[in-house]
Simulated scan of single mutants.
Amino acid sequence: MTSGLERALAEASSPSWTQRVRAGRDLASFADVPEAAEALVGLLLDAEDTAVTRQTAKALARVGTVAAIRLIALAVAEADDNRADWLQAGVHDALVGPDGAPDIAAACGKLARDPEEAVRRGAADISVWTGDTRC
Rank of each mutant, 00 (worst) to 15 (best):
R83F: 05
T56W: 10
R70F: 10
K110E: 15
D81R: 11
N82S: 12
E78P: 00
A89G: 01
C108A: 11
R113D: 14
A105P: 03
G109H: 14
L111E: 05
A67S: 15
R83G: 00
W86N: 01
A89K: 09
A106P: 00
Q88R: 15
G100R: 11
G100L: 14
A79M: 04
A105L: 10
L74K: 04
R62V: 08
A67R: 09
A101T: 10
L87M: 06
G109W: 12
C108Y: 07
A61M: 07
V76Q: 01
L74N: 01
V76R: 01
A106C: 06
G90T: 03
R62Y: 04
R113C: 07
L111V: 11
K58D: 05
P102A: 14
I69D: 00
A89D: 09
R83L: 12
D99F: 15
V52M: 08
P98C: 13
L71M: 09
Q88L: 10
A59R: 00
R83T: 12
V66T: 14
L74M: 10
L60R: 02
R62P: 00
G90Y: 03
A51H: 07
G109Q: 14
I72Y: 03
L95H: 04
A67T: 08
D99T: 14
R70H: 11
I72N: 00
A68I: 04
A84F: 07
L71P: 00
A77W: 09
A107Y: 09
V66L: 07
R54C: 05
D85E: 13
A67P: 02
L95M: 15
D114G: 04
L74H: 03
L111A: 08
I104T: 04
D103C: 13
H92C: 10
A68S: 12
D81E: 13
A61H: 02
A77G: 05
A75W: 01
I69M: 04
T65H: 06
D85S: 09
A101H: 06
A68G: 03
A79T: 04
R113F: 14
R62G: 01
A59F: 03
A57R: 00
R83N: 08
T53Y: 05
D93C: 06
G100T: 11
A101W: 10
A107S: 13
V63C: 04
V66M: 09
C108R: 02
A73L: 06
A94S: 10
A79N: 01
R70V: 06
V91I: 12
L74Y: 05
N82V: 15
G100F: 15
R113Y: 14
G90F: 03
A106R: 10
G109S: 12
D114H: 13
A77F: 11
D114I: 12
V52P: 00
I69K: 01
D49Y: 07
V96A: 10
P98R: 13
A84S: 07
D114V: 12
A84G: 03
L95E: 11
A57D: 04
V63L: 07
D85Y: 08
A101N: 06
L87E: 01
A51N: 11
L60D: 02
L60M: 07
V96C: 07
I72R: 00
I69S: 00
